[in-house]
């Protein structure tokens, strides 16, 4: 009968470390200071494994594996620069960008990920999301056209705040996020904690005060509170 060792040894990009069973590749990589880009991951939430931007090569595995949800095995050897993993992950980023009406703002996580993969434009120009009005809230706004349906805001509302005010709606290209039953933050169960804006990697949900820094607002966006 085999016994489970109390620690696993793993090697990532040539660095080796000891880790507790259950540690994910991503967690181990951060300890060993190996860079793995992520998009749907937030350390305050359970790993979600939806975006495939964190794909890495694992010796012996049939294909790339998502680092955020894959637990280490003893003796695992991981290559974060493995060409297939990088190519697939880069294509994911390119597809995500193809849906947006404009490139992501420089400070956003999505922009950082795009820089990491050297993606500046998409080979697949196609349908893009249209802006639509969002009911007024004194602090928060939701620009639906920038939503990439990563689900981080919904999970922040559920797993960090526990208010369950945000909803994922639609399928495929129509997938998006709404507050409550698409009634806006203020009329929904939202408690205005801002955890969604804090985690959003594209600025789709953001603070009005930050939008005002970037210049004049598009016409449909609400005026900030002047009180």
């Amino acid at each position: 009968m085999s016994t489970t060792p109390t620690t696993f040894t793993a090697t990532i990009d040539g660095s080796t470390g000891e880790f507790a069973p259950g540690t994910t590749i991503l967690e181990a990589a951060r300890v060993l200071q190996a860079t793995i880009p992520t998009l749907c991951f937030d350390e305050r939430q359970d790993p979600f494994g939806a975006c495939r931007v964190c794909l890495v090569g694992v010796q012996g595995a049939p294909g790339p594996l998502p680092a955020c949800t894959t637990p280490l095995r003893d003796g695992m050897v991981v290559d974060t620069r493995e060409p297939t993993a990088r190519r697939v992950a880069g294509a994911v980023v390119e597809l995500v960008l193809s849906e947006l009406p404009e490139p992501p703002a420089e400070h956003t996580e999505l922009a950082a990920v795009a820089r990491e993969f050297d993606v500046t434009s998409s080979r697949w120009p196609g349908k893009q999301h249209e802006p639509r009005p969002e009911p007024r809230h004194p602090y928060l706004t939701l620009r639906h056209e920038l939503c990439i349906s990563c689900g981080r805001c919904v999970r922040a509302c559920d797993e960090v705040q526990g208010t369950f005010a945000l909803t994922a709606i639609g399928r495929g290209f129509e997938a998006n996020i709404v507050a409550g039953l698409d009634e806006g933050f203020k009329a929904s169960a939202c408690v205005s904690c801002g955890a969604c804006a804090d985690t959003c990697p594209t600025g789709a949900i953001t603070e009005l005060s930050l939008l005002l820094l970037d210049g004049p607002e598009p016409a449909h966006r609400p005026e900030p509170a002047t009180r």
Partner: peptide, 14 residues
């Protein structure tokens, strides 16, 4: 707070 705060801490600075 583990990376969280409420509408007072986050927004009520005006």
């Amino acid at each position: 707070n583990l990376g969280h705060t409420c509408l007072k801490g986050r927004f009520a600075h005006q």
